Each structure stands twice: as C-alpha cells, then as structure tokens.
Simulated assay, not measured.
Amino acid sequence: MTVVVVTDSTAGLSDDLVAELGVEVVPLHVLVGDREIREGVDPVEIDYAADSVTTSAASPGELREAYERALTHSDGDGVVAVHLSRMLSATWESGRQAVRDMGAEDRVRLVDSLGAGLATGLPVLAAARRARAGETLDAVYECAVAAAARARTFILVNRTEQLRKGGRLSSAAAFFGSELVTKPLLHLVEGKLELREKVRTRSRAYAKLVAAAVEAAGRDGAALGIQHLGAADAAQTIAEQLREQLPELSELHVAEFGPTLGVHLGVGALGVAVLPGGCS
C-alpha cells in the first residue's frame, strides 16, 4: 500500500481532492448553544456574530480512531498527520497524545502546518501526492514539514474583535487603533496570527492582499489557495488578479472558510495561502 495522510477539517480541501488522494479528514467542532456540530459532517446553520458560538479541537480519542484507521489503510507503511497550527488550536496537541496512547511514534508522524485553512491544505496536498507516488514515510513527512515551512498566509478581516476574544490574535493588535476606520490585514508568523498592517479602504485592502501574495509566491510555479466567508465575488476577483499577475502558477484553489475558522474570522473574511514552488 502507501503512506496515508491525515488532516483536520479546517484544511479547506475539496471532497474530490480528498477522495482522489485518499486523505483522511478529522472533523473539528462548532458549539452552537448546547449543540455540538462536526465540521464537514453535520448540517450547520450559524450566526457568526453570536457570542454563544464557539469552537473546539478534535479530541485525542477522535484522532486516535482516525490514525488507527489510516494505519490499517496504509497496510503498515505509516501515517503523516498534518494539522493546523498548534498556536491556534489544541488539535495538534490532541494528536500528540493520541500517538502516545497508541505507542505509534515510529509509524505516525505529526506535522504542525504553522497555518490554517488552505495554508494547511496545500502542505497536505504536497504530502499526499508524494504518498501516492509511493514514497517512504520519511520522505512524505519531510515533504510536509518543508511545505509547511515555505507556506505563507495573508488574511483580510472586517474586525479583529472575534479573534482577540478567542485568543487567536497577538496583543499587538492594541497598537493599531480603531477598526472602525481601518481594514486589518493579518498574516501568520511561525504559526501565530499577527497584524501585518492597517488599510483605510476595502479596495486598498484588496490591493495590499494581492501584492503580499504576489511577493510571497515568487516565480517558481507557486500553488495558491483563496478562501472567503460570504465574499465569493471578492474571492473570484482576487483569483483573477492573481492569475493575471502570476501566469506561472502551478495551481489555484478557491474555497469557502469552514465554520470552525469562520467563527473566528467573521463574515467578509478573505484569505490567501501561498506555497512557493507548488505542491508537486
């Protein structure tokens, strides 16, 4: 068989890609009142502005089940699990506990993607393609680690209040003044979400987002992922601009943020994940 890659539901990959590459996806959870919703599994209707809506990581038990299932499917070749940044979620730590409980440190390798959304998904694609090509556990793991280190993420949100409340944004946000007259442009730095700069108008913010992605992509056939929450038209516009400015792109994916990330980012959020050199 081949090495199997596992990720979590924040990775933003389409069902077709997941099925094609045999990726195992573990759902994270959204808590709406007294209801617990498994992302990507249960029907969901969420008021993203409600204070009562929260999220929770996958549990060690859930991850252990997924890892054991993946190990069986790999026929002993091993598992590489690529999860969203440990600075943003307890999922990676739950994964580490699951591997310890299994006594499977030599067969299940954990990777902190240092990102979220398609910044996790693109390294997953890179690793899963290596696995499908028949490469060893060590080679697939090293590919995922290298891709995670190269990836860059830029996110435009309307407000940072939800991120601050959830502890996902650096306290440096306090130095950026009122958000009523600015559009916060964020980026991920070593797995932590930081404010990159403040922009006065939405059109200027979009231009800054595109410029940051173009600079990060370089000219070596980067892979890009664009995500949004309730901003499909803007996401398509950004995609068109990036295709025009980066004709050598190896691939570009457009998807909506899932509810786990959407709860923290808010409606209107736009993000661009960049993997220089691509996912091959």
Rank of each mutant, 00 (worst) to 15 (best):
D51N: 07
G266V: 11
H264E: 06
D75Q: 14
G103M: 05
D16R: 12
Y141C: 07
G266Q: 00
L224F: 05
G40D: 04
S203D: 15
H228E: 00
R202C: 02
P276I: 01
L265W: 03
V181H: 09
A151K: 10
L137F: 06
L88H: 10
L163E: 01
Q227L: 14
T55Q: 09
V214T: 13
E45M: 05
V18Y: 02
A57W: 15
G262A: 14
Y67K: 08
G221D: 03
A222H: 04
L137P: 04
S203F: 10
D220N: 13
D51M: 06
K198V: 12
A131G: 04
L169V: 12
A231H: 02
V5W: 11
T55D: 09
V18C: 01
G277A: 03
S113F: 05
P27E: 08
Y141F: 12
L185R: 01
A223H: 03
E215C: 05
Q162L: 09
K198L: 10
E142V: 05
A216S: 12
L122F: 00
L71W: 04
G22Q: 00
L163F: 05
L229W: 01
A104H: 07
H187C: 09
T55N: 09
E36H: 11
A81V: 08
A148M: 03
E93M: 13
A217S: 12
T237D: 14
L195F: 06
V189N: 09
V32D: 15
E20C: 01
I155F: 03
L252T: 09
L17S: 11
H228F: 01
G268E: 02
T237K: 12
G40I: 00
V4G: 03
E68I: 01
F154W: 04
V23F: 02
A232M: 05
A151S: 15
E45P: 00
Q227V: 14
E190T: 13
L31C: 06
R168S: 07
E105K: 00
A205L: 07
L125F: 05
G271R: 10
E24M: 06
L156M: 12
V53S: 10
A147Y: 04
